[in-house]
Each structure stands twice: as C-alpha cells, then as structure tokens.
Nucleic acid binder design. Structure first.
Lengths: 335, 335
DNA sequence: CTGTTTTATGGTATCGATACCAGACTTGAT
DNA sequence: ATCAAGTCTGGTATCGATACCATAAAACAG
C-alpha cells in the first residue's frame, strides 16, 4: 500500500487466489461464499489495507449509495438536529450524505441540484418546497426518491416529512388569545424564500382573523432581514412604539424570542406580566434552564430519522406521501 | 429524457454530431473547442437535459471532485458556520462536500473514514485531532490533503487550520484576573474526546497557576456531561455552594455561559457586580442585542474558507502546515 | 448410479466518462 | 505553392467495480 496508489479488488483477489467477483461477493453478500474462501479474502483485505472504490461500484451497479441534501442553511441551528439524525441513520445503513446549502437563494438551488445529480445520488432531501420550474422538472425527471422536509406542501413532489407550520402558529396564537392577550404582534423575518416563516405568519394572521382580532401587526414587509436575536431585539422596540397596548409578541423562532426577552429585560418590561412572549422551535435555549420559553417543540430528530427511512424505502413511504411528525405546544414561563 | 434513464454523453454527441470527447471538452475546457461546435454541443445538452455523470468521470480521471468532512457534531452550532463557508467555497470551485458526524465516538470515526475513503475524495477535513492508530495510518497512506480544523495540533498530520484554544482560554483567564477577580471557576463538560474543551480548561489552569492563584475549580472530572445551557445552569449552583467567595465563572462555551447567566438571574445574582461571566465562541447569543457576553470570538467563517483553500491548493498550504486564523477577546458587559 | 436441481465460482462485457495518441485541418512563413 | 508548427477532433483503451452468463462442483431424488 504505497502512497498514492490504491489497492484494487484484483490485488486482493490475486493474493487470496480467487476471482475478483468472489471478493466483491465477500463484501456485499458474504453468505454466498464458502467459509474457507471468505476467510481467505477477508485476511487478504486486511493485509493489503484494501478500501473498496465505490465510484467504480456506483458506475457498474448504478447505485451510488449516496443521498444528496439541499438545505437552505446550516448556519443557524434549525436543521442541525435533523441533519445529524439523517446522516447517522443513513450511515448505519451504509449510505453517505452529500450536503449543500443554498442560503435561501433559488439560483443556487438549481446549480446545487445539478451538481448533486451529477453524483447520481440514490435520493434527495430538500428543505425548501417552492422550486423554480427548472428544478421541479429536473426532480421529476429523475427516478429517485425526493423528500421535502420541515414542511407539508399541499402537493409534494414525491414524499414530504414535516409538520404544519401554519397549524402550529395558529395553535400558538390561539393559546395567547386564550391567555387573555388581545394585542398580539408577530415578529419574523421576511426572507422571501423562507416558506416556513411565511406559513407561520399566515397561521398567526388566520388565527387572529378567526378570533375577530386585528389588525395583525408585524414588521414592515419590505424589511428583508434574517430572523435572529438581533431582529427580535430591534423590532421589539419598534413594536412597543407602534402599539403601546401591546400585550404579546409571537416570534417566528426561539432565536427571535430570545432577542425580545433580552431587550425586554433591558427595558424593564415584565414577561409575562406586561407582555407575553412565545418562540418556535423548541431549541435548547427555550428550556427551563434557559429562558423557560413557551414555544412550539419540533421533533427535528424524528424528521431526520423519518426522512432517512423514506429514502431507504421509498415504496412504503409513498403509500402515505405525507408523513406528519407533528409538533407540541410547550407552555412554559413566558406565555 | 424518460424516467429512470439518464442521458449519456454519447447521446449528446450523436445529436450534436460530434465525438464524445468533444462533449467532454465543452464541459471541462470549452476554450479548446471551436465556437460552432461548442454552441451545437451546448444546445444539445440543453435540449436533452443532459447532466454529466461524475462517478464515471471520477473513475477515469481519478479525481472525484468531492471532499469528505468528518465533524464531531453538527448538532450544536459550533461548526455550523465553518461548514457553511466550507461548503460554499468548495461548491464555487466545482467541488462537493460529503459530510459525516461522529458524535465524539472514536469507533465511529474509523468507520466513517473508511466509508469516506471508499468514495475516493480529493481531500478530507477533520474536526478532531486525536486519532486512533488505525485512523492515523489510513490518513497517512492516502495521498490526499488532510486538514485538521478548529485546533492547532502540535504535529499536524498534514495541514491544520485553527487557533490556539489553550492560548485563548489563557488570555480570558488573565482578562478576568486583570479585572480584579480572584476566585475563578471553570465550567465545561468533560467529554473525553472533545480536545478543544480540554485545551481550554488547560489554558485556564495554566493562567491561574501562573498568577499564583488556585486551587482552580471546575466540575468534577468524572461527570461526563455534554456542554450546554443545562450544564451551565446546573453547575453554577454547585459552584456557588462549593465556594461562596466565587467572583467569576469562565465557561467553555457561550452556551454554558448562557446557562449560568439565566441561573444567575433566577437567583438574583448580579452580573458582573457579584460575579463575572465569560463565554467562548462569539456566537450570536453573545452579541450586545443578546446577552452582551464577554467572550472569545472565533472566526468560524474564516476557518471554513481557509480549509477550502487548503484543500484546493494543498501545496501552498503545506508550506505553512499550520494556518492560525486567530481569535479575538471581546470585552462586553458580563466581565 | 444416473439425472436433475442447487450452489459456488470465474470469465467477460459493461457502466460513462477521460487520457492518450494519431490523424485531419488551419494557419502563417518562406 | 509548399512546408512546419500549431490547433481541433475523434478512435480506442482504460479506470475498478458489478451484472450476466456459463460452467464446475455438490447435493439430492429416484
């Protein structure tokens, strides 16, 4: 095993005095090889330090044993748990994950998808559900499972694993209303491509509308800000100015809620006394040891596992097409 | 382009009435093909919706245009920024990233590495620097760049991109001392494989020792807890009990510091009046709109970019072997 | 003991691209 | 007009595995 030269299956076969195909079988279907030869081959593999070449295997078997993932971001922790469980579950089944992030840019999405398809993945995971025509066409033309996650699109391309952002936000708004809140603002970025955030805002608006309340208030539409602590902090001030009667702030994410809570403390605003605050996500920061934040807990881990299962066994998953992992409204100290 | 059948280079070549090699050249070295043919080929590519097969290309050129990454975790946000910039930078150069996480488990690391090598990556990124003998042997036997990140090992396998966790922690401890703090505790998990956390603790201990102070205090060695908000919150209580004189808590991460700060508020402990608190990482939560936490800002983004450069041009990077991206002690409101 | 099924094994073609080389065609200089 | 040098282009071998088929050996039924 000298530097720069890979040991091939042939080398192993020669050393073990068998055909290459037998080596291949020892690796893929060891039960079909007699014990004597299997042992000999395994010994040769160890001795030579043989690492099979999956690119060659992929070519001849047209199974790459790789799945592709296109996530809108890995930078904030939203998908981290999902990616973690997805990648572990897949690796346990002998598959690898090819990861790309788009930063919510649709042009990047198409490029990323082409680059991904060039690796001939056995399936694809996407966090976005609104695709350009070209992307949709590409995805439909390939005969591999496509799993859209973290949302439940009305018409999934193939399989969807997620929960209803709309319904969850709706529930949270109703919760705030049931707690006697009457002037509820919604705080969330307006990244045009962040479908999840948009659906949450819509759920909020629907709930208020349904309760005959309004007008719903949220940061100016044309502010294209990334949701985060800073946004929560900055816009809380604005909200207070705009509506002194404000008695609740519903945030698009736990991070935004943290920004609000920090700002509230600085201004001496009592939570939940003066103002109730809710988050979305159920991240560690919302826990009782953290901000003790009332939030929507999302089973990010389960989404990863369920998507992995869907990729590995698409037929079964397609029977449902939409896999709803649900969510949980967690009532804690802030609302 | 019917379902399940991929268009091949030959199909494109036939339609454009050229040889396959010309199609290949249009994709890789377009300047070497006359404009007329190039146009014809590009048209054919578009018409057929051709997506090249990189697995085949990898086989014949022995360049996979894929890099592998083995990170100890993607779950907490530590590496998120680094992965994001790494993957973007690589993709801009036409490369993809194969991602695996080990959850700090050395057995998993070896498996993951074997699986990765089976894809014949053009380079590998690792977040861990203490490897099993087998892993080190594997890495040394392959003739591809290996980049260890987020730390500066004394003897890098190949190239290292990071900063000195030891020195940074040392600086922070000195900062606390310079602020008149005399009873400084260190709070951090003891995951045995988390080298970074360990080096920070050592830096802290060294600084205190140097200042003739001590005994250094930190949670019991045998507690194998993951660092996080909960740890900060739980152990802050314990620290106070153990040493009522405590006037500073230096945390292994911003998350732990947040746990401490939350707990301090619940207990009515003044920060920084009664007790100073410092974090490590410089994540969003430490910003002035958040906790306004005194911390060590780490250029996670730069680490990603620098590693990408090192992977793409290892010869230049090897001239230095160790690329120190530095860190910044950011003094804010908590210490 | 023969004939049939089952199991184990290897040879050869193949997957879809690129490398290498050879030949055809330009271009420009003389 | 001719030749040398340079530019394009395509044929064929090749990368390292697996699929497919054929054969040899073993197991089994009658």
């Amino acid at each position: 095993m000298s530097k720069g030269k890979w040991v091939t299956m042939k080398d192993v076969a020669d050393l073990a005095q068998v055909g290459t195909i037998t080596v291949s079988r020892v690796l893929r279907t060891p039960e079909k090889v007699t014990e004597a030869k299997r042992k000999r081959v395994q010994k040769a593999i160890r001795e030579l330090g043989y690492v099979p070449d999956n690119t060659a295997g992929a070519l001849s078997s047209s199974k790459s044993r790789v799945f592709g993932a296109i996530v809108s971001t890995i930078n904030d922790s939203v998908f981290a748990q999902t990616l973690d469980s997805l990648s572990s579950t897949l690796r346990a089944a002998g598959y690898e994950l090819l990861l790309t992030s788009t930063n919510y840019d649709p042009d990047v999405e198409e490029d990323a998808l082409r680059a991904l398809l060039a690796r001939r993945p056995d399936g694809i995971v996407l966090t976005s559900t609104s695709h350009s025509a070209e992307v949709a066409k590409l995805l439909q033309s390939v005969n591999i499972p496509v799993v859209e996650i973290w949302q439940l699109p009305p018409a999934p391309l193939d399989i969807a694993v997620g929960f209803s952002n709309f319904q969850a936000a709706c529930d949270m708004a109703h919760h705030l209303i049931s707690k006697g809140r009457r002037n509820i603002a919604f705080l969330g970025g307006h990244e045009p491509r962040n479908e999840r955030g948009r659906r949450r805002r819509e759920g909020y608006a629907a709930a208020l509308n349904q309760a005959g309340m309004g007008p719903a208030m949220w940061p100016n539409e044309d502010q294209d800000l990334r949701s985060g602590i800073e946004l929560g902090s900055a816009f809380f001030e604005e909200c207070l100015k705009e509506d002194p009667q404000l008695d609740a702030v519903m945030c698009v994410s736990d991070q935004v809620a943290v920004g609000v809570l920090c700002e509230a403390r600085r201004r001496g605003v009592e939570v939940p006394g003066d103002i109730a605050v809710s988050g979305f996500g159920g991240f560690e920061i919302s826990s009782p040891s953290g901000f003790d934040l009332t939030t929507i807990a999302i089973p990010g881990y389960d989404i990863g596992v369920a998507s992995a299962k869907a990729l590995l066994d698409p037929e079964t998953a397609r029977a449902n097409k939409i896999i709803d992992v649900g969510y949980r409204l967690v009532e804690r100290g802030t609302a």
